[in-house]
Structures are given as structure tokens and as C-alpha cells.
Amino acid sequence: MKCRLLLALLLGTYFSVLAQPKSPKVVNFEQFESYLSNTSDTTYIINFWATWCKPCVEELPYFESITRDFAGKPVKVLLVSMDFENQIEKRVVPFIEEEKIQSEVVVLVEPNANAWIDKVDPRWSGAIPATVIYRADQRSFFGDQFASYEELKSIIESYL
């Protein structure tokens, strides 16, 4: 009896660990930079957002649809959260879980924005949302919210 209880407890712990949402990777700019310069045939959609940014959260479903609709094609969405480091467990992880985010999320922790904004794109003012779309040498920058899923989709299709 005791043994069974222990087993149940152990199993319970095991499954609760499994059920934990996957925490997003936390990166500094040096680690992040490689995402901006892949030379492969894949089209990368790199969106800068934060859980507290209303227009960002509004357009996240577009990126999620891209991940879903272009599954099996050389298209990769990366959602780069600008949330603060002390908010990752409190806000980012629950957000990913509740919204069932399927695209890859990383949290970029690099306070001195001025040292790296221009390396993402010189046209970027620093305001979010902002999105870089690129494939090898072909690259576009969008410093604003996308008007619709169709707009985003047609831009990505032009890269394929």
C-alpha cells in the first residue's frame, strides 16, 4: 500500500514535470545574431514583440498561422520577446502556454539596445512590433504592425 502511494507520488511528479511548458530560450545579442544571418534556403520571419505590447499581441496569430500554413516548407518563424528578464516566468511562460504558441520563442535580454538595434536593421527606430523577413541575401524590414494575415502571407510567398 505504502509502496503504491510512493509510486503514485513519483509518477505524479514525473508527469507534472512533463506537463510543464517549455521555457523559452534566453539569449543575449551575440547568441541571437546568428538567427539574423542564416545563408540557407529557408525564409526567416523574425518578429520582435512583448507580452505587454498590445499591437504585437494582436498580430501574433498571423505569425502562428504562418507556422501552421507553411508547415513542411522552408519557412521559419522566430518570435523574439523583448520582455524583461524578471518577467519571463511570470508573464512569458504563462502566455506561451495559454495562447498555445507553436512558433519558436526566444527572449532577447540585452539592455543596451543602442548597441544592437542597427545590427538588426538600420531602419528600425526601436519601437515594437518590428519584423525582419529574409532569405539569404534578400531582406525586408517592417517597423509596424501588419494590417492583415493576407498581407504577411503574400510578402512571405514572394520569398518562396
Binding site: A113, W124, G126, A127, I128, P129
Partner: peptide, 9 residues
């Protein structure tokens, strides 16, 4: 001139 991350106006 510098840039900074912030919220869009």
C-alpha cells in the same frame, strides 16, 4: 543621436 527600444507612438 541614439536609438532605444520602446513602445511605438
Amino acid at each position: 543621436t541614439t536609438k532605444a527600444i520602446g513602445c511605438g507612438i
